[in-house]
């Protein structure tokens, strides 16, 4: 059997990379922060998964989807802006998690615990990440086109509603997978920071998107290695490595 450290490295590479690649679209669409509230929303789901001992991403996914639908529904029913509703929803999610979870499990829910990943959990997470990456790669230019101008995209015959739906679904799944490595609190950073770093360093969209993917994967590897040597939780270490790369990129900016 492969040891759990190696498994966590493999999962980190796949989820971190795909989150970075997805983040390049989210940051340019000014949606970089939305993964934050969505991540917070997953906390009750993670809590249930820990209590009943099943995969945290499986617990998280229905909560992300439910949260996104709730925000959309409340936005239609009230005149409140999306960001205020997001605040209401995610605070509710965090509060619920604190009620459900025993204190000692809270840390896992909040900042993740990648080294606890099971063999099959690792295989499935890596495979799902890979599939999401391939889907995103296929729709990447269509999403850019419809972000630049939905009207223009429609004139060119692009079904903008379909592609947007697929894109949102990819965000929900990556957030649910992301909680496995960085917990419910840090998912926004997992998607946003690699993209910001890559944007500082890239000359074109190809370098930007794949750069974000490489930085996302590399940060996950280094974060998990640092965990191995320091014993601090891996989730925050992955994010800190990401932040470190970002600071360097500011000085190397093209």
């Amino acid at each position: 059997m492969i040891n759990s450290f190696l498994l966590s490295l493999i999962v980190g590479v796949f989820i971190g990379g795909t989150a970075g690649y997805l983040g390049s679209l989210m940051v340019s669409k000014k949606m970089g922060l939305i993964a934050g509230p969505l991540g917070h929303l997953t906390l009750p789901g993670i809590a249930l998964a820990i209590l009943y001992n099943f995969d945290v991403s499986l617990g998280a996914l229905p909560f992300v989807i439910l949260g996104a639908i709730l925000i959309w529904f409340l936005e239609m029913k009230t005149d409140l802006p999306e960001e205020s509703l997001t605040a209401v929803i995610f605070a509710t999610g965090v509060s619920l998690a604190f009620l459900i979870l025993p204190a000692k499990e809270l840390e896992t829910a909040l900042v993740g615990d990648i080294v606890k990943v099971s063999f099959w959990g690792a295989v499935i997470s890596s495979l799902v990440s890979l599939i999401i990456f391939l889907i995103l790669r296929k729709i990447y230019s269509k999403i850019i086109f419809s972000s630049i101008s939905e009207d223009l995209a429609k004139v060119e015959g692009i079904d903008t509603k379909k592609y947007n739906f697929i894109y949102l679904l990819c965000i929900a799944i990556i957030v649910a997978l992301g909680v496995k490595i960085v917990g419910g609190f840090l998912t926004a950073a997992l998607v946003a920071i690699p993209a910001c770093t890559s944007k500082n360093l890239s000359k074109n969209i190809f370098q930007y998107s794949y750069g974000a993917m490489i930085i996302g994967s590399l940060s996950a590897i280094l974060g998990i290695l640092l965990y191995k040597f320091s014993g601090y939780p891996a989730g925050p270490l992955i994010i800190l490595v990401n932040s470190f790369f970002f600071i360097i990129s500011v000085f190397l900016r093209r």
Binding site: S28, K29, K30, I144, S147, I148, S149, D151, L152, V155, K199, S202, K203, N204, I205, F206, Q207, Y208
Partner: peptide, 19 residues
């Protein structure tokens, strides 16, 4: 073919002319 007045959001993406 339709060309709108402006495309302000195009600047959010680091696109080259070829891209």
């Amino acid at each position: 073919s339709y060309v709108p007045t402006r495309l302000p959001l195009v600047k959010e993406f680091p696109l080259t002319i070829e891209e």
